[in-house]
Structure formats: C-alpha cells, structure tokens
C-alpha cells in the first residue's frame, strides 16, 4: 500500500529496501536491490574484507557470489506477475568464469524466463566493474507459490 504523499517511484524503492531488510543474511552482506519487476531483479553487493575467500589474492569467496545469485533468483521469481507468495530454491548451478576483482562490488541480474504451475526457471549472471565480462553465471529452478491460491 502506498503511504500518503509518496510517489510511485519512492514506493517501489521502499518496497525494495524492505525486501532486503527482511532477510538477515542479505542484510549481513549489505545487499542492495537496484531493480525489480516483471520477473527480473538486479541486486548489488559491496566488496567487504569479510567476504574474501583467497587471502593471498583478496578475491571474494565463490560462496558469497552464490548467496547473491540465490537471493537475486528468488527476488526475480517473487517479482513475476503470477507468483507473489514466496518461493524456495530447488536447485542452483553456478559457473565461475573468472575471479572478481578485489575491492569492487558485485552486481547480479536474475531473470525468471519460464514459469509452470509449480516451477520457476531462472538464469542469472554477475559482474564486477567490468560489465562486459561476467564473473559468474547461474541457472536454477525455484518453487512457485501462486498468489491467491490455497494449497490442497
């Protein structure tokens, strides 16, 4: 519901912030929802020393990128017009194409490209400051809980 005197854009931004704030682990990784709607989500995660997986090079841990991809995939499914009642990951495959550059934020974009009665199919990619060379790609299946329908 739109608060009084709030523009549509402000409203969307508030919902986006609340989405991340409601998820403790996404908050712990300081994720920021940049874009959401129609089955697409874009989330950015700032670099942090706590996320480093290789102390010799300072490269971020693959697991942190996985967490970003999983959150982004779930957000994409929930933003799909046909599913607004929550989702859970069934499986997620991540391909690590290159190490992310130390110190740079990672941005992920996930798209729910197909939806059946009970399964949402998602693909995603992630990049650092070099948007043309992804650091990782992901493919996943998510459960679908449709809005306004009760379970039998």
């Amino acid at each position: 519901m739109t608060a009084e005197g709030e523009s549509h854009a402000d409203h969307k931004a508030r919902i986006a912030r609340q989405f991340i704030q409601a998820i403790p682990f996404s908050r712990a990784l300081e994720m920021e929802l940049l874009e959401i709607g129609q089955g697409v989500a874009v989330i950015r995660m700032p670099f942090s020393d706590a996320l480093v997986g290789d102390p010799q090079t300072g490269v971020i841990h693959g697991g942190a990128v996985s967490a970003l991809m999983d959150t982004c995939g779930g957000a994409a499914v929930m933003s799909h017009p046909e599913a607004l009642a929550g989702t859970a990951t069934i499986d997620l495959r991540i391909d690590y194409m290159r190490p992310a550059r130390p110190g740079q934020p990672i941005t992920a974009r996930a798209e729910c490209y197909h939806m059946t009665r009970s399964v949402a199919f998602v693909r995603a990619s992630a990049w650092d400051d070099d948007e043309d060379r992804p650091v990782a790609a992901a493919n996943g299946a998510f459960t679908v809980e449709r809005a306004g329908k009760t379970k039998t």
């Binding site: 403790p24 682990f25 693959g62 697991g63 942190a64 859970a88």
Partner: peptide, 24 residues
C-alpha cells in the same frame, strides 16, 4: 547464527548460506 537466516517467517537458513557452506 541469526544472521544466517534467509526466511525469517519459517524461519530457515538462507539458500546462499547453504551453498557457501557446501562449497567450503
């Protein structure tokens, strides 16, 4: 730890935590 939660309503561990744990 509480910060590992991904769904506060169930509550459940974040899928990304599970992925990172298994990869580690």
């Amino acid at each position: 730890d509480e910060k590992l939660i991904g769904n506060p309503f169930l509550p459940a561990i974040h899928g990304g935590v599970t992925a990172a744990f298994l990869e580690t």
